[in-house]
Design a protein around this nucleic acid. Structure first.
Lengths: 323, 323
DNA sequence: TTGAAAGCGCTAACAC
DNA sequence: GTGTTAGCGCTTTCAA
């Protein structure tokens, strides 16, 4: 068995409670005793058992991070950043993948609840109602979606969409398609609203579509047939699939049709032409979400909503409208 | 506070131990009592506290998964698969990113040790000695590296390298470069040994290089100057950077130089030309590693070493040798 | 400043 | 088949 607080207490000739204090309430113990205890602990290789500690303190020092699909390139930078940020606060993170299944998501949250101080819900697929119910048992921070009364981290995709449409308009495009994502998606709705409000262009809504390359590929026919010269896609994956489908049909990108994606995943820099896209601050979102969660765990006050900036990155998949 | 076993016991008129048994030793309790207890538990929304359970059983039902870099596209499929497999066995997984820093890696392992039943070490950067020392406190499974006496999951990159070299040889290439990875890398060494043993081709070793796009980009000059007509790169990232550098220098791929990567990351399908690569069974490795870990946690016997198949995926970055 | 004792939620002998 | 009891490793009153 591993070395416990008792071993340290015995070896340093003090009571366990003193050892405990030496670690978690240093000011309550004589400096000399403390140094001695710490030295002995070090020598024995003692590490406090966080689970046992959690039992009395009610603080696990763990958080849960639930995402729809780890393999979706949008998430890894967020996971990485969240995990790194958590570590600076001495927190560990459980990562769970729901495979886009709300059922799995709910179950995961429930089994995780007792082991964590809070949960980060990234692009959750659950209904608001279910989220609210589950929230009774554990603090949440929701990323990429708006749920009433819940601390939230959003990325301003509306602004991104406006920038994108402006960019296309400046290039002379007058008829633009929005190749949307899944029907329930908050992001998709934001994009639509922002784009629809822009003057000087006609907007054609094409969707819903699965948020994947496949989804984009399948939409290529409709896009080609729609007579648009510019496209704003739900995300980079969709944009990449779309470009593939378009090029496969003999459509030139950006000669005939300009394409803009969302997310700025690394793959977007590798396509030919390189993808113009709206960069999402995923890493910043991960960090901020962790901060918010630990904040709300500590105090419980308020329901902060953060809106992070997005930016348009112009590469090669957009150009002058054909005339 | 959340509902505990005590609440359930009280509400169903039995002792806590009976409730405990109803969950973890059903055969020891009267079927009727059991159904009643379970019903009450369900109604109250009782969920066993796994941390508390771990305190008595010594089984946390958690595992740790430590990777060098979550954002490296090689890892997400592995993480996803490991996490999914763990879930089928009722295990949760801590994911931690070391940022390629051995120091961080060691500390992470130490703080995680008490909270998990075992740890998956993916492409660890620690010395064998350190790994062996840490292994005294917690079971390990090592992925992508060979450590004496440790359960291991390997991917047969040697075979992949042979297939790759054969493929180039069949296309008429006689002088081939191996653009290697980091100096300590097990994978890199395997590739080198396998490729060097092939007859009918001259092998030029270029490296070590960082395992990134940047690394490939920087190696482009040497590759172009080396007079080879075929290249096997350490991984897809390096291969992609290399292609970029080559094409930027006016070298045609595959017209002048053929390029083969390793990993089969999704981005490789997006480059122009599409990347020929050695597919690594990362998802299978993740699943197998979890199985091995839980196996060794359960029994502790043996030191299994699994070698998973790799395959050559021929796309567009390889072609006939120029004459 | 330190020790003693109770208890966090749960399981595991041991009785009955 | 079920209740009793002790205890997992730790923190936290309460005394001294």
């Amino acid at each position: 068995m591993a070395v416990t607080i008792r071993d340290v207490a015995y070896a340093s000739g003090v009571h366990v409670s003193t050892v405990s204090r030496a670690f978690s309430a240093p000011h309550l113990v004589n400096p000399e005793t403390r140094t001695r205890v710490l030295a002995v602990a070090e020598e024995l290789g003692y590490r406090p058992n966080r689970a046992a500690r959690a039992l009395t303190t009610g603080r696990t020092h763990n958080i849960g991070l639930i995402v729809a699909d780890i393999a979706n390139p949008f998430f890894p930078p967020l996971i990485k950043a969240a995990q790194a940020q958590a570590r600076t606060r001495d927190y560990h993170v459980f990562v769970a993948d729901t495979d886009e299944d709300p059922q799995v998501e709910e179950e995961l949250i429930q089994t995780l609840t007792k082991q964590v101080d809070g949960v980060l819900l990234c692009s959750p697929r659950l209904t608001n109602k279910t989220i609210e119910r589950l929230h009774e048992d554990v603090p949440f921070v929701v990323v990429n979606r708006r749920v009433k009364g819940m601390p939230t981290v959003l990325m301003d995709v509306g602004r991104g969409a406006r920038l994108a449409v402006e960019h296309l308009r400046d290039l002379g495009h007058r008829r633009i398609a929005l190749v949307s994502g899944p029907s329930g998606s908050w992001t998709s709705r934001q994009m639509h609203e922002a784009a629809a409000a822009m003057s000087g262009v006609d907007l054609v809504l094409l969707g819903p579509n699965p948020p994947t390359e496949q989804g984009g590929l399948q939409a290529a026919g409709d896009v080609a047939a729609s007579g648009v010269t510019g496209v704003l896609a739900y995300n980079d994956l969709v944009a990449i699939g779309l470009m593939e489908g378009l090029i496969g049909r003999g459509v030139d990108v950006p000669g005939d049709i300009s394409v803009i994606g969302v997310d700025d995943i690394v793959s977007g820099r590798l396509t030919r032409p390189k993808l113009t896209t709206i960069a999402m601050p995923t890493a910043a979102a991960g960090r901020m979400a962790v901060d918010m969660l630990l904040q709300s765990v500590g105090e419980g006050g308020g329901t902060p909503v953060a809106m992070l900036e997005t930016d348009l990155i112009i590469r090669e998949s957009t150009g002058e409208a054909p005339r």
